[in-house]
Design a protein around this nucleic acid. Structure first.
Lengths: 155, 155
DNA sequence: TGGGTTCTTATGGGATATCATGGGAAATCA
DNA sequence: TGATTTCCCATGATATCCCATAAGAACCCA
């Protein structure tokens, strides 16, 4: 396996659970992280999820500042205060917390999007919009256009 | 588990007790600290709490000064004088002391904020304000000075 | 190649455990 | 002795565990 790839959409059940795609579970198992590490994205209505590799990436960001300093505290609140460690049950499911619901707008379906070292959790329709937008941007970038400076969440 | 992560708001009961979030208790248990180490933050209206990992961080600070020196003494008084060691009862609750009440403005609800190696105790409304501020600051810190090998999130 | 068989996966639901919270009673303190 | 504080148990809500099932994918063997 080469990290989290492809994307899948699964249904939420009455108890607020979703199956994590089997191929993602395989990656997580190999990574060895207990459960799942989730952090809401600061620039889109999605939640980043993953294991040790993602966590290491996050930790790296706060290491530049001395602990107990105001800067470190602010960063820690923004990063870890907005994180969660959902468990994965015996059937490979996780529960979508209120925090994830609020940040993503998820109601009854969840789209899992592989991004190599992490994956994202999206509300399916919002993901479709984001994806279309991302493709346009990619096209513009490839054709040498100056990238649109606005990346407002127009959702 | 990956340290103190996420945030929770619990109610204070008539006796001044709050439940410490179960996941935080699990981290404390693993850390092995007896009870809880609390110290009021010097730069915000919150109280830092944790176990040995936090204590070690604080001790590291005072070690920068030679023992018996006036500086060391002053720091020790400031640090440990503002500290407390609340017990955690059999049901995982702590009592909010007057010191914590005064410093945080807590009345009937308490927000616990995970910050990896420690967590903070906040009055919920004050936390909301601080959090908005912290997010702005974090964004500025992370985008302002890209730490070494930055890798942009490109879809 | 085709058709049946076995595995895997997503999903549903009942039973059980955990957690936050409330309150009584015993213990402690001043 | 009166006022707290600490210990213990009760309870409702939620989360977790465990098993069932159906659809699909992979597999096997002629």
């Amino acid at each position: 396996m080469a990290g989290f790839v492809s994307h899948f959409t699964n249904r939420l059940d009455a108890k607020g659970r979703v199956s994590i795609p089997a191929s993602f579970r395989a990656v997580l198992a190999r990574d060895g992280f207990e459960g799942l590490y989730c952090i809401s994205s600061s620039h889109c209505q999605a939640v980043d999820a993953g294991g040790n590799e993602l966590l290491a990436e996050i930790e790296k960001r706060s290491e530049a500042f001395a602990k107990l300093s105001p800067d470190h505290d602010a960063l820690a609140v923004a990063l870890f205060g907005a994180s969660e460690n959902p468990k994965i049950d015996g059937d490979g499911r996780m529960t979508i917390s209120d925090m994830i619901r609020d940040h993503t707008g998820i109601t009854d379906q969840v789209t899992f999007v592989g991004m190599k070292y992490k994956f994202q959790i999206w509300e399916p329709e919002k993901f479709r919009e984001y994806r279309a937008e991302a493709q346009k941007r990619a096209l513009a970038m490839l054709s040498g256009q100056p990238p649109a400076s606005s990346q407002g969440e127009s959702a």
